[in-house]
Structure formats: C-alpha cells, structure tokens
C-alpha cells in the first residue's frame, strides 16, 4: 500500500508503522532539546511494542525515561513538565491503561489552558497503542477514541498508515495543546513508503483513500484497510465506493465528509470502538445536520464494535469488531437499497 500523505517529490523509504513512529520521535529528539519520551519500559526494553526501540541508546535515559508503573502519576508528571517548558511524549503501554490516568488527561491536561484563561499551555503527546486482534482480551484491546474525542481541549488522531503515523506525531509535537495518538497495534508491522526527514500531516484533515461515486465509507485506523479491501470487492460488482480515512476524531474534518456524502448520497461509518455513542454516531449526526442531508438517498449505517468487552476466543474476537466482509455487505445493502 502506498503512503497517501501528499509530499511531492521527496525521498521515501520503506518503513513499518512502528519504525515510522520511532523515526518521528528520533527526529523530534534531535530537533528540539525540550522533547522527552516518558513511559513504562520504553528504555532498554524498547517499549511494549518495540516502538521506542533503541532510542534510549541514542538519546540517553534523561530523554528516554522509564517511569514506574504509575499511569496516573506519570501522566501527571508529563502534564507538569509540559506546563513548564518540556514537550513530553508519554507512551501508555496499552491505551486501556489510560483509564488509570483519566484524571490527569481529562481534568488537568485538557482543561488547563481554559481554566487558566489562556495563560498556560500543555503541549504534550499521549501515545496509546489501541485496538483488538492480538488475543489480549478485554483489558488490553479497547478503542477509546470516542472517550477522549468527547473532551474539549484534547485533539485525537488515529493514523492508519506509516506515513501518517510519522506525520501526525510530528504535527502533534508542533501543536501547542495536548494531542492523543491512537496507534493500532495490528498496524505496527505494516510497511509502506514513508517520506524521509521532517514533515507534518495536518491534524483535523481526513483523506480520501479511494474516490468513488456510489457510497461513502468513513473509516478510521485499521478499518481504513478493511474498507479498502471491501471497496475492491464492491468494484467488481460495479459498486464504486469512496473510502475516507478519518485520521482525526477531534477535530473532525466536516468538509471532506460532507462533500463526499453530497456526491454519493450514502454513508457508512466504520470504526472499532463500541458502536453505541461512538465516532460513527457523531459523523451520522453531523451529516444529518448538514447541507448534505438533502442529498442522502439511504439511511446512514454504522458498523462498530460489539456491545461487549473484547473477548479472548479468536473467532469471538473477530466477530466483535467490523471485518471486511461485513463492510462489503453493508455497503452493498446501502447501494442496492436493501435498508
């Protein structure tokens, strides 16, 4: 798969998603002496998913800091450091553990600038490995993007490609406010061409991965790839699906989605978080309230995670989140007016 980030005429190199994130962090550590990495076992261990890798050897333990297993305290230290002049990149081993740090993320980091009337800034990045498919069951597989997307003051992104993983991380570091990056664990090994050197991918911009006429599929994270797979199958039957990679949950790219739905008249939202009150609900409501409403020619459909914790059994685990055949079937239903 090709990296879709539009960087004209630059040198690219094949990297995995994890390597692209590491590359971004290395560039950031080199460019900006105030950048530090914090997290559990991100030093010699290299991170739970080997994302920080050998960075501790290159930048030392002062800048690649192992923290105790103290998610709340660690996140709070990152907030305090950001408030006073550092730019921490804080890694949670699993996004699930961010539940331990909700206080610092939601009550402190997100609100500090506002509570202090613009007199303070919290420029930090929380990296959160997320998603199911690894057999890690209920407490290590969740997709919390809607939780954090509900909090004014936070920005929430979900890169789906190595190039975006790098570009969004560097953009997040440039952002003067806290940014949460959900990295899908199943994508860490995915390889693609990634531009070399420094660049940023804008936060808040979706990307049309595959243009189409008949139905708009808005997907995020790994669902983008499943949607593209479904779109190929649909194309064989003459159904031309447009696949949009949401990339950013907050802020959401209204314009791109509205323009697409105006064109296709049909919308399918695909996301891994629990279906109810999820990202798809927001996109659906946004379309219903927008000028695209008068162009809808079918009900809006959502495919999301099951109303259950992520189960352990591999078949159950697959059944708990949208897979390509389900996306294909739902798009077909929309186009064939079966719903």
């Amino acid at each position: 798969m090709n990296a879709q980030t539009a960087i004209p005429e630059v040198k690219t190199r094949e990297m995995s998603y994890a390597e692209a994130i590491r590359d971004a962090m290395a560039i950031a550590l080199e460019r900006d002496p105030t950048v530090i990495l914090m997290g559990e076992d991100i030093g010699v261990y290299g991170g739970a998913f080997q994302v920080t890798g050998d960075l501790v050897e290159r930048f030392g333990t002062d800048r690649v800091m192992d923290t105790p297993i103290s998610e709340l305290g660690g996140a709070g230290v990152a907030v305090g450091a950001a408030l006073t002049g550092l730019k921490p990149i804080f890694e949670f081993q699993f996004s699930d553990f961010a539940a331990l740090a909700m206080e610092q993320i939601v009550n402190q980091a997100a609100k500090m600038r506002y509570m202090l009337g613009g007199e303070a800034a919290v420029p930090l990045v929380f990296r959160m490995p997320a998603g199911s498919g690894t057999g890690a069951a209920a407490q290590h597989s969740q997709s919390f993007e809607a939780w954090f997307g509900h909090v004014p003051g936070l920005k929430v992104v979900q890169p789906s490609t190595p190039a975006d993983a790098k570009g969004l991380l560097l953009a997040a570091l440039e952002d003067p406010d806290p940014v949460i990056i959900f990295e899908h664990k199943l994508l860490y090994k995915m390889k693609a061409q990634v531009p070399e050197g420094y660049y940023t991918t804008p936060i808040g911009k979706a990307q049309i991965m595959r243009p189409g006429r008949d139905v708009t599929i808005v997907a995020s994270a790994i669902m983008v790839h499943r949607a593209l797979e479904a779109a190929e199958k649909l194309a064989k039957d003459g159904i031309d699906a447009e696949v949009i990679d949401l990339r950013s949950v907050r802020p959401i790219d209204r314009d791109t989605i509205i323009a697409s739905v105006r064109k296709t008249g049909r919308l399918l939202c695909v996301y891994e978080g629990v279906r109810t009150l999820g990202v798809g609900a927001e996109i659906s409501a946004m379309i219903a309230e927008s000028e695209a409403f008068d162009y809808l020619d079918a009900p809006i459909l959502r495919l999301g995670g099951a109303e259950a914790p992520i189960p352990y059994n591999p078949d159950l685990e697959r059944a708990a989140v949208p897979q390509a055949p389900a996306i294909e079937a739902a798009a077909r239903q929309l186009v064939r007016r079966e719903v």
């Binding site: 105030t34 530090i36 002062d62 709340l72 305290g73 660690g74 996140a75 709070g76 230290v77 990152a78 907030v79 305090g80 450091a81 950001a82 408030l83 006073t84 002049g85 550092l86 921490p88 206080e103 610092q104 009550n107 402190q108």
Partner: peptide, 16 residues
C-alpha cells in the same frame, strides 16, 4: 490533582 503536576514541573527544572 496538583501532586504529579508539581513533580513534572520539578522534572522540567532538572532537565533544563
């Protein structure tokens, strides 16, 4: 709420 934040502020002083 302020306890870890204070530690972070102290970390900044030490780092810088």
């Amino acid at each position: 709420g302020g306890l870890p934040i204070a530690v972070g502020a102290a970390l900044t002083a030490k780092r810088l």
